[in-house]
Nucleic acid binder design. Structure first.
Lengths: 210, 210
DNA sequence: CGGTGTGAATCTGTTCACAGCC
DNA sequence: GGCTGTGAACAGATTCACACCG
């Protein structure tokens, strides 16, 4: 399944959930597309990957589709995640309620600094890094979320991998090197901002030329 | 310039700044590549887009390259940004020092809720939404950062566009519809997590098959 | 009709491979 | 020998276009 497809599937999922809440039962590829920024053909291709379920002339059955997408992208079960780093980003993530709704449970939060260890964040005590390996094993943690400064990101990643996590969500602006049995996804504010800066400049440039 | 190129340029920039701090003066495409997760050919292609500056047998002059990349991606000047939404995400962004270092200045923060307006966040008072249009004009705000719940994202975007911002960084899990003179970039935690979930599932699946 | 499913064409981005320069 | 710049081959993803179904 193409990487971009996965990304779009989760957008479709959101729209489908909205439609389901409104009581709709079917939806066309056209509708799903425009509300998620894709073309209708794109939507049909994407849905083709997860085993098509559409009815010509009618569209897709919303409920079935929700189940199928959840299954396909692996959110049909609950994932247990641990946050490393109780700074601004880590705390915001811990408090970000929306994860829970979607099947991601923040099970623990860790920090290196003794000054922070022991404090409560979103109802959980911040634990020392030393406690992490054991907590990951005992708490059946699948995913590590890295919210530490860039210099510490790689060592933290190594520790998480050694402890046995299967995926890492990385908020630090660094490329992590990990064993390839472990999946990593980067969320990089800075490069998002830079992408934006770039596009804004580009637009004013082309405006000037006109 | 291809979208993925821009993304990588900002990774190169980080590595270049690190190397410059170490006192190095030149760098090869190979080095730049491995440290940012790209191939050497890729790096050369990317740098080709911004007007090549490399010397065969030697590599690229680090200082020149830093300037050239900054110019190319539009971070050679300071951008002024305003955050809308003083919830967890908005507050974390306001406090996230790293932006400042990179030429993005958070100039103001707004929220709809009277309960929050007036409180201090990262040394700034949270302002009412009604104050936004004027603040954007008077404060020469280039960029709006949306950190509100998904239902409010579109109206907030409309208000920002009407007030005259030129770019929007969107942290809400919604696709925004805006005039195309305005650039938007999405940062979506949820779909990042879902992508991760997907990749983790995929890996265990292929492991099982082996 | 309105709508899906899908091969074929196209576009976009990446890798290869190699000539040429220091 | 080390390293860049770049056409040419390749791979991946998107769009097109159209047959087919209710």
């Amino acid at each position: 399944m193409p990487r971009p497809t996965v990304q779009r599937l989760s957008l479709y999922l959101r729209e489908l959930e909205r439609l389901a809440a409104e009581g709709r039962t079917t939806v066309s590829s056209r509708h799903l597309g425009t509300s998620s920024g894709a073309t209708d053909a794109q939507v049909r291709k994407d849905l083709g990957f997860i085993g098509h379920a559409g009815q010509p002339g009618v569209g897709y059955a919303i409920d079935d589709l929700i189940v199928a997408i959840r299954e396909a992208i692996g959110v049909h079960r609950a994932w247990r995640a641990a946050i490393v780093g109780a700074g601004n980003v880590g705390r915001a993530l811990a408090a970000y309620g929306r994860f829970q709704e979607e099947g991601f449970v923040i099970a623990a939060i860790f920090d290196q600094s003794p000054a922070v260890v022991g404090r409560q964040v979103a109802g959980m005590p911040v634990q020392a890094m030393e406690a992490m390996p054991r907590a990951v094993r005992d708490g059946a943690i699948d995913i590590g979320i890295i919210a530490v400064p860039p210099e510490q990101a790689q060592p933290v990643a190594d520790a998480l991998v050694a402890a046995g996590v299967r995926g890492i969500l990385n908020f630090a602006p660094t490329r992590l090197q990990v064993a390839d049995r472990v999946a990593t996804v980067d969320v990089d504010f800075r490069s998002a901002l830079e992408r934006l800066a770039m596009e804004v400049s580009e637009r004013s440039r082309s405006r000037r030329e006109r």
